[in-house]
């Protein structure tokens, strides 16, 4: 796992993806920080974090798109899959490399906290709560991106499909709200109600927004971690399936 992790970290910076990701993340979070926090004269950093959900949604696929698709295309996966390492360590090595880069990017908020400290007092509980929420959200999104990357040989296809998948997750709340539960027979109503509830309960946005409103919800953390685990597990199955097909 260590070897793959180190190689991927190196590859992020030799391919330039790492620089692009870090600079775009810093730029956009800086803009949101200026308008949401400094501009409005508040010491609470939450507005920046709530705006960053969409940014993260579009940036993470860039991070994950090539992790498996490129290996498959260049046939380097033959080197990995015939080496004496388990599939889990291949998947997790890549996963944690992407997660590390994400954490580095996210940690820019600690620089912003210095600016807040100049003008007032930093609200540490809110900042750390938001920081943790974004970390776990990223952990879940990266796992989804890695999974989609393992399904295709084409980086662009992986990126677009991941963005679409994450965007659908973002829209989940609006979609759920648009379901008209009151119509149809009793059975249809029941089914629609169930579907709506299910959609609300897997909503990433509402769980994430909970944190930006100052609620530290452990069940949401568990939800994000479970999602991350589940999709990493799926990725392992995809690799395993290729062996068995």
């Amino acid at each position: 796992m260590g070897a793959i992790y180190r190689r991927e970290m190196g590859a992020f910076f030799t391919s330039g993806v790492g620089y692009v990701f870090l600079s775009v993340f810093t730029l956009l979070s800086g803009i949101f920080f200026y308008f949401g926090v400094i501009g409005s004269g508040r010491a609470d950093i939450s507005p920046m974090f709530s705006s960053m959900f969409l940014v993260v949604l579009f940036l993470i696929p860039i991070l994950t798109m090539k992790l498996f698709s490129e290996e498959k295309k260049n046939r380097t996966d033959q080197g990995l899959l015939t080496a004496p390492v388990s599939l889990w360590s291949i998947v997790l090595g890549k996963y944690f490399a992407a997660l590390t880069l994400f954490i580095i990017a996210e940690s820019v908020v600690f620089i912003y906290s210095l600016f807040i400290a100049v003008f007032g007092e930093v609200m540490w509980p809110s900042l750390l709560g938001n920081y943790a929420a974004m970390l776990f959200l990223g952990a879940a999104f990266i796992a989804i991106g890695v999974f989609i990357s393992s399904l295709t040989e084409n980086q662009m296809a992986a990126a677009v499909a991941s963005m679409l998948a994450l965007f659908l997750l973002y829209l989940l709340d609006s979609l759920a709200a648009s379901i008209n539960v009151g119509s149809g027979s009793e059975l249809v109503q029941k089914i629609l109600g169930f579907v709506q509830n299910a959609m609300y309960s897997v909503s990433f946005l509402s769980r994430y927004n909970g944190f930006t409103q100052g609620v530290f919800d452990l069940s949401s953390i568990v939800f994000f971690v479970s999602t991350a685990f589940l999709f990493n597990f799926f990725t392992v199955r995809v690799l395993e399936k290729r062996r068995w097909s």
């Binding site: 793959i4 190689r7 190196g10 590859a11 260049n74 380097t76 996966d77 080197g79 015939t82 080496a83």
Partner: peptide, 25 residues
Amino acid sequence: YLPEIPPLYVDMTVEGYLNFMYDLK
């Protein structure tokens, strides 16, 4: 194993790649 198409990471140096395979194995 040397497959038909060698599994080389083209963005690495030869030394870096061999060190990676050393760690991987």
